[in-house]
Every structure is written in C-alpha cells, then in structure tokens.
Simulated scan of single mutants.
Amino acid sequence: MAARERVFGAIGKSVKAVAKSRGSEWWYTPHMAAAARAIEERIPLVDLILEVRDARIPLSSEYLQLRKIPSACRIIVLNKADLADRSQTKFLTFLQARVRELKKKDDRAHVITLMLVGIPNVGKSALANSLHQVGRISAAEKGRLKHSVVTPQPGETKSISSLKIASHPNIFVLDTPSVLPPDVIDDEVCSKLAVTGAIKDSVAGEINLAEYFLSILNLGEEYKKWAKLSSSEAGVALTGDGSLSLGKKQKKKYPTDHTQDFIVNNVRRTLFDSVSSFGGCTEDGEDLARLIQGEFEVLQKVFHLPLETKECNYSRVAIKLLNLYRTGRLGHYTLDHVPCN
C-alpha cells in the first residue's frame, strides 16, 4: 500500500472513530442536529438555496441533506477558489438575475430570501458578509453593517442570522450553522475533509494531516512551478549545515513568521529541491515516507524553529505547513476527481 493511501486511511479511521463516539465535540453534536432541523424547517420558506462547497473538494464537501431538494431551487457555489474579491459583485448580479426570474413568477413578491448552507469551513459566513457589504454599497444604503462571525476554525456559526444584500425587491440571505452528515463511511472523504480544515485538526493530528498534504504535493505537478525560484529571490539562503543565513535587509524581518513572502518562497524552493533531487520512487510507499521524513527535517530549519524535541518541532512544522496550504501559498489543489462532464 502506498504511503499516501496508508496516511489517508489512518486519518479516515481517526475521523470515523470520533464520528461514532457518542457526544463527541468534533462531529455530529446535538447542536449540529438541532441546526439541521432548523435548516430543514426553513427550506419551504426560502426562494433559493445556495449550497456552498469547497472548490478543492467539490464532491466531498457536498451538503448531503439537500439531495432530496429539487435542483431548480438550489445553486451550487464553489468557494475558496472561484469567489475572489471582484467576483462578489458578479455573483450578486447573477443572484439578482435569478431573483428577477422569481419576481416574474410572482410579481407580488416584495421580499426574496436566500439561504446559505454547507459543511464546516467552506466560507459561508465570509460569502454572506461580502454579499451584504456589496449589496448595501450598490443600493447606496447607510447604517451599520451586520457581520457573520468568520474564523479559520470550523463550526463557529451557532445560529441562523439574516443579512440584507439588496433592495427593490428586498433580498435577504440567511447564514446558517455548518452541518456534517450524521455518518461518514468513506475513509478518503474523511481525510479530505480533515486536510482542508472542515474538521478540527486535533481529530486526526496535525502531523498526519501535513504528511497527507506532502504526499499530495510530492506525487503531483504543482511543485514544478517553483523550479525558477532561487535562494536570492527567496531572500534566504541555506548554509552548508542547513541553517538560515539572512541578508542585511532581511535581518529586520522575523524569520519565525512563516507567512512572510521570503519564508514562503524558501519553503517552496526547499520542497522543490527535496522532490526533484530525491533518488527513490515516490510511487513506492516506503520511499515516499522517507521523502516526507526528509522534508520535515529540512523544514524545521526553513521555519527557523528553536532546538527542541523532534516531536515538538514536527508538530510546529505541520501547523505552519497546513496554514500555508490552506491559504493557497503552496499552490492550488483539487483533491477530488471531477469527471469532465
């Protein structure tokens, strides 16, 4: 069995064990069950349902509770890729066109209600806030903006909130709590939900998740885009013993801040060098595991971590690496196999 299959199998089993544990704080909690019931009760009362999915896992992030809903009432939104800042206005225009269609069917309607639904951490609240802000600006309305809570942690929205996004007719969007399916039986789906942040990292463990991401990177083509990076461009040089050597201008920066461009570039360069110079076969499970082990070793130096226990530093490397992956600093990845049709 390949290393990647071994890793996602372990992650999937960890997630499923939590899902099956009664009263778990990470999976289908009583609060999530109550939210699912509240959403289901409102479905007949809304005009459109916007199902938000993660563009990295467009199939695995499906909101399963909507499978019985007619497709004519539902719009699937691929977030975290398709909706950059400027896209929000275009998306609002698209929604308004759909609303005009609804208006033609019922010209007595003065209020149109949309409802955002989705699994944890797909960006529902961020989308609701953006639509709310753009809609109010376009309508030249004044007043204090309401905001849905947005954090990188899954499950922060606790109740259904209403935000106005347009006037004439009035259009409101309902931001709803995230809901996972009560049962997930597919190990690979569980792994994808975990590595993209839909489930708390503590369920599977940051190191396991980082290993899974590195196996995706090592077996893919994305790292080849970093071939032209040089140490001088990155602003950081690796000395003969692998320690960091900063230029004069970089000494004022903070080498422990992994989000800085020169650190990110050095991470890219280091990963490119590690994969391209690897003498083993990445398709072989043991070889791939050995490559990932070496990447963890060198990334400790790239992230400029203090000399501590290997387990502690590996955990820090994993947290920083996952953050860079989830914010798009290490390339873009579609983890689901999406059919062409």
Rank of each mutant, 00 (worst) to 15 (best):
M1H: 08
E5G: 02
G9D: 11
G12A: 05
W27L: 05
Y28N: 12
Y28M: 05
M32H: 03
A36C: 06
R37E: 14
E40M: 07
V46G: 10
D47M: 11
L50R: 12
E51M: 14
P58V: 06
S60R: 09
I69A: 07
S71A: 13
R74Y: 01
I75H: 06
I75R: 14
L78I: 01
D82K: 15
L92M: 12
R98A: 09
D106F: 02
D107M: 09
H110T: 11
V111M: 05
M115V: 10
V117Q: 01
L127D: 00
A128W: 01
G135V: 12
A140E: 08
G143S: 08
V150T: 09
T151L: 05
I160N: 08
S161R: 07
S161K: 11
S161F: 01
I165V: 15
S167P: 00
N170M: 05
L180M: 12
P181D: 12
V184H: 06
I199D: 02
K200I: 01
I207Y: 03
A210K: 08
L217G: 00
L217N: 02
W226N: 04
W226L: 10
W226S: 10
K228D: 13
L229G: 01
S230V: 09
S230A: 05
S232N: 05
E233I: 04
A234I: 05
V236N: 00
A237M: 11
K248N: 14
Q250R: 12
Q250F: 09
D261I: 07
T270L: 06
T270K: 10
L271K: 02
F278Q: 05
G285E: 11
E286A: 14
E286V: 06
D287E: 14
L288A: 12
I292G: 01
G294K: 12
E295M: 14
K301N: 14
V302R: 00
L305R: 05
S315N: 09
S315T: 07
R316N: 09
A318S: 12
N323Q: 07
L324D: 03
T327G: 09
G328Q: 07
Y333G: 08
D336M: 04
